[in-house]
């Protein structure tokens, strides 16, 4: 154990789980009710007939909306707010999209490969007009693979925090402090997963998803840069300011 009492671990875990439940954008119950409400054939057709710029803007707005909940999630994590402001900003800037992608598995239905988007569930074909089929299919595959691990809300909460409070970020001012906190979070997560999962490799499989998570974020940045070269005005005028600040 990283020199920490079970009491402290439990406090850290409960604080993170509470923060997650308060800021998860959709409760598990809401998602369950929405799960089988899918976009109609006409609605999907409508998405497919949108211009590339319009659909890119809509996705940027939805991503930014989700990121604001992630910022709120971070603000309620005691250990995160004890970090210096430089590192708080740096961890959020480099990790917020990764947390959104982890959280997205909650809003993904692996039975019909649909994801919640603008109020209803829809498949990959809904995003055809974006012109980013590789990114979209990779995101869907990631969500499906995370769903297959059948994580509980507590496990999603702790894993999200461990992804956010990461030592793999350059320019951290207090890397040791970040590392100690991340270790405690992973230790708490390991403890919970050993209880909940027969498969003793469940945590290893979960951690094994992190490189893909990072790759998705890189691909998102590349697709944004490509899109921006063609439509600089659209990004400049129509994209949410926070999205531009984070990804531009």
């Amino acid at each position: 154990a990283p020199g920490v009492s079970m009491g402290e671990l439990d406090r850290i875990a409960q604080n993170i789980i509470k923060s997650h439940l308060e800021t998860c954008q959709y409760t598990a119950e809401e998602l369950q009710q929405l799960a089988w409400q899918t976009h109609s054939y006409e609605e999907v057709k409508m998405y497919q007939s949108k211009s590339r710029e319009v659909l890119w803007q809509q996705c940027a707005i939805q991503i930014t909306h989700a990121i604001q909940y992630v910022v709120e999630f971070a603000k309620r994590i005691t250990g995160f707010m004890e970090l210096c402001q430089n590192d708080q900003i740096l961890l959020l800037k480099s990790g917020c999209l990764e947390v959104v992608l982890v959280r997205m598995c909650r809003a993904f239905n692996p039975l019909n490969n649909t994801v919640l988007f603008e109020g209803k569930y829809g498949g990959m074909q809904m995003f055809k007009a974006l012109g980013c089929d590789d990114l979209v299919s990779a995101v869907f595959d990631f969500a499906k693979s995370l769903c297959s691990l059948q994580l509980t809300e507590e496990e999603i909460a702790l894993f999200s925090a461990a992804v956010l409070i990461s030592t793999d970020r350059p320019w951290l001012m207090e890397p040791r402090k970040v590392q100690k906190l991340q270790e405690k979070i992973y230790f708490a997560l390991q403890h919970i997963m050993q209880k909940n999962h027969m498969d003793e490799d469940a945590l290893a499989k979960l951690i094994g998803r992190i490189p893909t998570l990072a790759a998705l974020c890189t691909l998102h940045t590349e697709e944004l840069q490509a899109f921006q070269q063609l439509h600089p005005e659209t990004v400049n005028v129509l994209f949410p300011p926070l999205y531009k600040e984070l990804f531009n």
């Binding site: 604001q68 402001q85 708080q88 959020l92 800037k93 300011p241």
Partner: peptide, 14 residues
Amino acid sequence: KHKILHRLLQNSTS
């Protein structure tokens, strides 16, 4: 730099 993120972190929890 990161004016918006900085302000979001400063604001009282919404």
